[in-house]
């Protein structure tokens, strides 16, 4: 496959996109809630042809000494080689780690989950919450898809029963103490043009990227600038505003439930 890089860059300069989208228009977004039964919460998210799974597993463990009465959040992402000819077998590389950290910060810094409610016995036993992201097909903008999938999985997660000694994974009832629904919006700068939700091809030619996570009240809970060019102050101001506005639209999608993969 050869990517038509010159064409994509030239189009961007004209404010047009290869798939005929507007600069600030997302591809079709689909969310499938609770596709799996083993994880406590799960979701499949499709943005265009990018497909991402998120799974939440809960276990019981020892809290960190500096937060003895709070549960523990661990986010992890894997760029499985099923997803792209460019992904290889092996430990996560920097892009996967960056992705996991953006998901982590989106949930952690927004205080999406009331971590104190995940405390069982202060200083001794708390719920350990693992959020795992698994990429199935890479067509760009994996970050927004992953944050959306993680949030959807948090929404539909049910806690297993715990009797003080053993976890009973066969009985799951209580929902997670979810306070906010963080979502991420990613922009790309190609030349002087700025677009949202870059495809794989667009991300091959982008000069700079900006990801902004927001929560329901419009507050911003994480920002990540990437790429080897810069944004002007005016651009940043404009994009932060856009991120809040578009984040609202993404959050509305979370209440929908589509059938993406059939089992």
């Amino acid at each position: 496959m050869i990517i038509d890089e010159g064409y994509i860059a030239a189009l961007a300069a004209k404010g047009v996109r290869a798939d005929k989208r507007q600069p600030f228009e997302y591809r079709k977004i689909e969310i499938q809630h609770s596709p799996f039964s083993k994880p406590e919460g799960s979701a499949i998210v499709k943005i265009g042809n990018s497909t991402v799974l998120a799974g939440i597993k809960l276990g019981v463990g020892v809290p960190f000494p500096d937060s003895p009465n709070e549960g523990v959040l661990i986010a992890n992402a894997e760029f499985s080689p099923v997803a792209s000819p460019e992904f290889e077998v092996g430990p996560p590389e920097e892009d996967a780690i960056e992705l996991a950290r953006i998901v982590d910060r989106g949930i952690r810094e927004s205080h999406a989950i009331d971590m104190e409610k995940l405390c069982i016995t202060a200083g001794e036993k708390v719920w350990m919450m693992n959020v795992d992201i698994h990429i199935l097909n890479h067509d760009g903008n994996l970050i927004d898809a992953s944050v959306l999938a993680a949030t959807a999985a948090l929404m539909n997660a049910k806690m297993p029963e715990y009797d003080g000694e053993k976890i009973n994974y066969d009985v799951k009832k209580k929902k997670l103490p979810l306070k906010w629904k963080p979502v991420a919006v990613t922009f790309a700068k190609i030349g002087n043009a700025i677009i949202v939700d870059p495809t794989f091809e667009e991300s091959k030619v982008l000069d700079a990227g900006l990801t902004v996570s927001t929560k329901d009240d419009g507050n911003i809970c994480s920002i990540q600038k990437s790429g080897s060019a810069g944004f002007t102050r005016e651009e940043i101001d404009m994009l932060l505003g856009k991120a809040v506005e578009m984040g609202k639209e993404l959050r509305e999608k979370l209440s929908h439930d589509a059938s993406i993969l059939k089992f």
Partner: peptide, 13 residues
């Protein structure tokens, strides 16, 4: 390979 959330107890990737 198995996804970490594919089993009753999470398995390490």
């Amino acid at each position: 390979s198995m996804v970490p959330f594919g089993t009753t107890e999470r398995n390490r990737p």
